[in-house]
Design a protein around this nucleic acid. Structure first.
Lengths: 276, 276
DNA sequence: AGCTCTTATGAATCATTGA
DNA sequence: GTCAATGATTCATAAGAGC
């Protein structure tokens, strides 16, 4: 399978217009947060954030396939002692563009940034907003199943009547649960809370997220040969992971130095892949 | 210290008007979620939810002391495959009433409800929205510090290899816990993510939340002798915990059977407290 | 007291059936 | 046609029982 990793340079508002309709199976991105990285991205002000983002999300809804998913990693910053509301407003406005707000995953950052403030604890979570174009979208749940807890062993050994009785008593229909579903069950489906550590600081560029984050969503919402898009590529984490997982990917970056680094990274990854 | 636990019967919209201005140090409540508990509460429709709640939050902003905090436990339900937006809208509207949206804590429910659906995982978190009247509010951070030693001990005792492996594989990123980090610290401040299981087992009334939840916020935002208010008392968990912690409390409940149970519970708790 | 094992059940969601 | 009720699905926890 020929996998293409397409790294583009420029403002994603413009570059996105070059992409054809219905061409991405997954959009995974972490846009610059308001007023963060001011020296790099220009620092969008919190009260301008929604208007800044809406033209981009409008292009994204065009580019995404009807069966595709858009995962937006975002968190509101604190302004003047209060959480900003631009994320809330953004969700409401994106729905007017036709997006469905399907789910909100939580990324629990286990080793969050240290610090102490008089009226606030450390912020150890971020939003992973799931948007879709259609209620019917591709989701490969089995790909992200996790090992069950120990209890399953004892539970399965005995296969007591309790669960069946509960079902029977509830409906009185005489049907027990399908026990065969349980017999070879060693894995469970995950929930909508993800536990990941932020990657340690020895990376050159402060990666916005650890590789495990895009990896999980790429597994869940795409198959090999599908296309992943990250319009705010940064150092290219999403694209590197996609390439490693045999997914085509497109990355867009406005900053020359990030763009160059991502290009170089891609080459390294590509070569190491060849060597295997 | 004389502690008063004041259990009132009626619709909180009306009962709240009886309470004086600036009289509560903490409001902790979990209102009926939209369309939930239909047979007990009226079952407010998702699109009516904001308008239903706003008169109540308007009374609450009057009753809360300027140094006090309002913690709202809430989660949007899924309607037609999409997350409802009433919580987002509620935050925006409450700000227009003068509330400051200071923080959003996450309650991670470790034992969330089971189930399997084609395009959705189990929901294992709820919002704990923190609102304030003023940027300067009382917060006793030291009261909720986690004693690292004890915590590490119990944690290590319970942490078998399966647990550790599961944590790592849950997200597939391969991050292990760095146990050595725990050893040289006495206490640590918590973050804005709370890990608690929903209480289950042989309780008579289904408590909406475990006692640990109000307990944590009562510790954090009040001192002994302060006043805690729960306008949607339910079975009275908040008030029982407050009483046990030597805080005055007011609970309001519209349903006679819950009201009676809370009254009875209060009496039991009171007597057991006397015996000690 | 401190284990192990058993048991009940929880702010759920979706597809289907019935009014 | 819409809307409401019912059935099927399923995992992690704590209380309790037993040793």
């Amino acid at each position: 399978m020929k996998i293409v990793t397409d790294i583009r340079f420029g403002d994603c508002t413009e570059v996105l217009t070059e992409l054809p309709d219905n061409s991405a199976d997954l959009i995974f991105t972490s846009p610059p947060y308001a007023d963060q990285r001011k020296n790099t991205y220009g620092g969008v002000k919190p009260d301008e954030y929604v208007n800044w983002f809406l033209p981009i999300s409008k292009e994204l809804v065009r580019v995404l396939r009807p069966t595709g998913t858009f995962i937006l990693n975002i968190k509101e910053k604190v302004v003047d002692g209060e959480r900003s509301t631009y994320v809330l407003e953004l969700i409401l406005e994106m729905r007017k563009q036709g997006w469905l707000w399907t789910e909100e995953f939580i990324w629990h950052k286990k080793n969050c940034y240290p610090g102490k403030w008089p009226n606030r604890f450390r912020d150890s979570w971020e939003r992973l907003l799931q948007f879709n174009k259609d209620k019917r979208f591709n989701m490969y749940q089995e790909e992200v199943m996790v090992p069950m807890g120990d209890w399953a062993k004892t539970r399965l050994r005995n296969l007591n009547n309790t669960d069946r009785m509960r079902d029977e008593s509830r409906v009185g229909s005489g049907f027990g649960k399908n026990i065969s579903n349980w017999l070879d069950r060693e894995k469970a489906y995950p929930t909508n809370v993800l536990h990941l550590a932020t990657e340690c600081a020895n990376k050159e560029h402060s990666a916005a997220f650890p590789e495990g984050l895009p990896e999980w969503f790429i597994k869940l919402f795409t198959r090999e040969g599908d296309t992943v898009l990250d319009p705010f590529m940064g150092s290219g984490t999403t694209n590197i992971v996609a390439q490693r997982m045999n997914r085509n990917s497109i990355g867009i970056e406005i900053l020359p130095e990030y763009y160059k680094k991502a290009k170089a990274k891609k080459l390294i990854e590509f070569n190491s892949g060849m060597r295997k």
